[in-house]
């Protein structure tokens, strides 16, 4: 080989090595796009909304004057809706996950169910709102209530909980199942006394992620007709309604009109007055802190479970 060719070859190799380094930088920059956006979003919200985050903001109803408006009705609404969502979605989702993982025979019905679970996870959330508007609001006549919203969001996060339950169950080694069966336990004894307790960490992670998603969901709740301006709280059980003098029933709050935090934010961000924009940013901080805290908790839980459990 001539010295010249050798030189050209060396240059070629050096060039390709430079491409490697270059891509290392480009890749890092691309990866940082997400992180930087997250930071920009957070800083932007804090600059705009921090000043509005006072005690009164949490204890006042919405108002026409932005500096007096607060989020009392919307955060109470969010808490109550999440309560219904959790009570509906957790038993359903865990039961469905247990069935698919531990009971289901390999046949076309099981395949059909599995395809449906996967597909439902890809359905846009607003479509759940349309389903709920037709089914819960008009056919079942639940009205535009906390119950309707809670059930709608429960359907929305059901696939998340089912998938999390199945993954947690799948991680339990077969030897445990064989050991329990060898002692003469039935399948339900195995599931209820062993598998579900062992899988509870994984299931909890899924539930938290699901609820974090439900808290921020806006579109389906708007579609079922949540109001944007609510200046009262749902009736607490057994308190006297001043208008009628009758005590409220135990479950009256389920059928009360309501609003939730993301809708309050949507409403304020759509208004032209700059004061409301600041309020919107403040609600944004509240929502984002709630969802990020829940997500971070779930990520931490998953990490802990992965490192702690050794079968």
């Amino acid at each position: 080989m001539k010295a010249q060719e050798l030189e050209a070859l060396r240059a070629l190799i050096a060039q390709h090595k430079r491409y490697d380094v270059l891509f290392g930088v480009v890749g890092l920059v691309a990866t940082m796009v997400g992180v930087v956006t997250l930071l920009a979003l957070f800083i932007d919200l804090i600059i705009d909304g921090w000043g509005r985050l006072t005690w009164e903001f949490f204890t006042s109803f919405p108002s026409r004057r932005p500096e007096e408006a607060g989020i009392l009705s919307s955060w109470v609404g969010t808490v109550l809706v999440m309560l219904v969502t959790m009570l509906a979605a957790v038993p359903m989702g865990v039961a469905a996950g247990v069935y698919l993982e531990e009971y289901a025979p390999r046949n076309w019905v099981t395949t059909l169910i599995e395809i449906n679970v996967t597909n439902l996870a890809g359905v846009p959330s607003i479509v759940y709102g349309l389903l709920a508007l037709g089914l819960f609001v008009y056919i079942l006549d639940f009205g535009e209530s906390i119950l309707t919203a809670g059930l709608t969001l429960a359907l929305l996060i059901l696939p998340v909980i089912i998938v999390a339950t199945r993954e947690a169950l799948r991680a339990i080694p077969t030897a445990i199942r064989e050991g329990v069966y060898a002692l003469g336990a039935t399948r339900w004894q195995l599931v209820s006394e062993h598998l579900i307790p062992y899988a509870s960490g994984g299931i909890l992670t899924g539930v938290i992620i699901g609820l974090a998603r439900a808290i921020g969901e806006t579109a389906p709740v708007i579609t079922i007709g949540a109001l944007t301006f609510i200046a009262f709280l749902p009736p607490a059980p057994f308190t006297i309604d001043p208008a009628t003098g009758q005590p409220a029933g135990l479950f009256d709050w389920l059928f009360s009109p309501f609003t939730v935090l993301p809708i309050q934010m949507f409403n304020w961000v759509s208004r032209p007055q700059p004061g409301f924009i600041l309020n919107a940013a403040a609600v944004g901080i509240v929502i984002i802190v709630a969802t990020l805290a829940m997500n971070a908790l779930a990520i931490w839980l998953r990490y802990r479970i992965r490192n702690k459990i050794k079968w």
Partner: peptide
């Protein structure tokens, strides 16, 4: 976490 940010906040 980026996936977990509510969409209405992205709208803002």
């Amino acid at each position: 976490l980026l996936e977990g940010v509510p969409t209405v906040v992205y709208g803002y």
